[in-house]
Each structure stands twice: as structure tokens, then as C-alpha cells.
């Protein structure tokens, strides 16, 4: 790749810009509230783990993380398993209304969640799923399934169709071909699609908050608890924030080699 002048400076400055606010959050999470409010220091003078201890010992805090991870995992599994056959169909066949259907799916990825907040509340209350992880997982399918179909279609299209034909000639049934032949070939694509489903389900708050009240409350909603009559508990808020960054950082580590192509939605 051709390089540009001053690239080290540009990149370094940008990475610092990205890391500085995160560093500040981490810094604050190790401080006591008195230290946060009374002094301005670049690192904690007396580092404390109290903020983290509260989160890990208080069920109303850590259950938020469990709730969030539950609906994110359900959503990722649902989205991928529904999207795989559809992506194959869009990639290999032409059928009545295929282009319109693809566009309609895509348009759901673009629909503003604010539009759906209220009707979703009514819908999931009516079918008794309100305040369960399933409600949030199903609601997030609205934008994650189209995305998964889109990414997987890109990856499947880069597998030559001769492979399908050879497999069928060898007597593979369709399900067996899909699992034994195609899946290993697009494994990285499945990984990338799962990563994106995880990502968009993990970061979304508006729908997750609207569709839960107590039992399935996501961590993002729990975090608003730090505002109390006694003022903001900044240290606790920062610690809770740091802990929401960790799952994402872990997931990035696993897909780091495919990340660039994945962001191009499998179609560069």
C-alpha cells in the first residue's frame, strides 16, 4: 500500500484522541468520589477497587450484565441461524421479488429505533414477552437479521458455485452440504456476522430499555441508577462503564484478522 507523508503523526494523534476519553473513564473508576470532586489528577492518587467491588457484590448491578449478555447471545444465535439459508438463497438464486425483498430487509436496518419503541412495547406486552430477554432479542432481530443476511451474502458469493454443484453430484443432501461443505468455507464470514450482531445488540439501549422493567433490565439502564439525591456517584458510573467496554474488547480480539473485511460487509 502506498504511504502518505506524515502518516505516523496523523495516526498517533488520532489513536490518542480515541484513547484519551477511555483512559479518563478508567482513571475515574479507580478513584473515590471525594478524590474525583476535590482534585484534578491525571492518575488516581490512592487507587481504590471499591467501585468495582460494589458492582460485583450487588446483585442489582451484576444482574444487569447477565441480562444484557443473555439477550445479546440469544439475538446473535437467532440472527445467524435465520440469516444463513436466506443469504445462500440471495447469493445463488433469482426468485420472484428477490430484489424487493432484499431492499425491504435493508430498509429495516435503516429504520430509526425510536419509531418502533412504542409499538414494540404494545406488541411484546400483548404476547406476554415484556420484560424478558426474548423480547429484546427478537426486537434487535429487526436490524441484526438484515445486517447478517447482507454480510453472509457477500461471503457466500465469494465461494465459487462449482463447489455446490460438485457436492450435489457427489450425492450430498442440501442440509449436509450446507453444514459439511459450505459452513467451513464461510466460517470467517459467520464469525464476522456474529461479531456484528453481538456489537449492535450490545450497544443498543433505546429498545432494550423500553422493553424491560425489572427482571431483564440491561446494564445500560441500570447505570442511570447512579444519579441519586446525594448527587452523582461518578466513580461507580465510571467503573460500570469500563465493565461494559470489556466484552466488546474481548470480541474484537477474536475477530481482529477479519475485522477490516467484515466492516466492508464482506464485499470489497
Amino acid at each position: 500500500m502506498q504511504q502518505i507523508p506524515g502518516r505516523h503523526i496523523i495516526l498517533t494523534l488520532f489513536l490518542i484522541f480515541l484513547l484519551l476519553p477511555i483512559y479518563w473513564l478508567i482513571n475515574m473508576s479507580f478513584k473515590t468520589n471525594t478524590e474525583i470532586i476535590s482534585t484534578m489528577t491525571l492518575w488516581p492518587n490512592r487507587p481504590t477497587l471499591d467501585n468495582y467491588r460494589i458492582i460485583f457484590t450487588d446483585p442489582s448491578w451484576y444482574s444487569g450484565y447477565i441480562n444484557s449478555l443473555t439477550y445479546v447471545v440469544i439475538n446473535t444465535i437467532l440472527s445467524i441461524s435465520f440469516a444463513l439459508p436466506a443469504a445462500y438463497a440471495f447469493s445463488r438464486y433469482r426468485f420472484l421479488g428477490d430484489k424487493h425483498l432484499f431492499f425491504w430487509l435493508l430498509s429495516n436496518r435503516m429504520a430509526p429505533p425510536a419509531v418502533f419503541a412504542l409499538p414494540f412495547f404494545n406488541l411484546y406486552s400483548a404476547i406476554n414477552l415484556f420484560d424478558t430477554p426474548w423480547a429484546v432479542a427478537l426486537a434487535h432481530c429487526l436490524f441484526n437479521i438484515p445486517l447478517a443476511v447482507w454480510i453472509l451474502e457477500g461471503f457466500i458469493s465469494s465461494v465459487p458455485r462449482e463447489i455446490d454443484e460438485t457436492a450435489f453430484l457427489d450425492g450430498y443432501s442440501f442440509p449436509r452440504f450446507f453444514l459439511k461443505v459450505l459452513m467451513p468455507l464461510i466460517a470467517s464470514g459467520v464469525g464476522v456476522a456474529a461479531f456484528f450482531c453481538f456489537m449492535f445488540s450490545w450497544v443498543e439501549l433505546l429498545l432494550a430499555r423500553t422493553l424491560t422493567s425489572v427482571n431483564a433490565k440491561p446494564i445500560a439502564a441500570t447505570m442511570t441508577r447512579t444519579v441519586s439525591a446525594a448527587g452523582m456517584d461518578w466513580g461507580l458510573l465510571a467503573a460500570a462503564g469500563v465493565l461494559t467496554i470489556l466484552p466488546g474488547a474481548l470480541v474484537i480480539w477474536f475477530v481482529r484478522n477479519y475485522i477490516a473485511r467484515g466492516f466492508a460487509l464482506g464485499r470489497v
Binding site: L15, L19, M199, W202, A220, T244, I259, A260
Partner: peptide, 15 residues
Amino acid sequence: CLIILALPLLIPWNV
């Protein structure tokens, strides 16, 4: 670089 770049994208929006 890729990991640092991707980091902000995976932080919940309220955070």
C-alpha cells in the same frame, strides 16, 4: 491499530 480503532464502536451508546 485495528483493535484500537474498533474499540469505540463496541461501547454501548449510553456509555
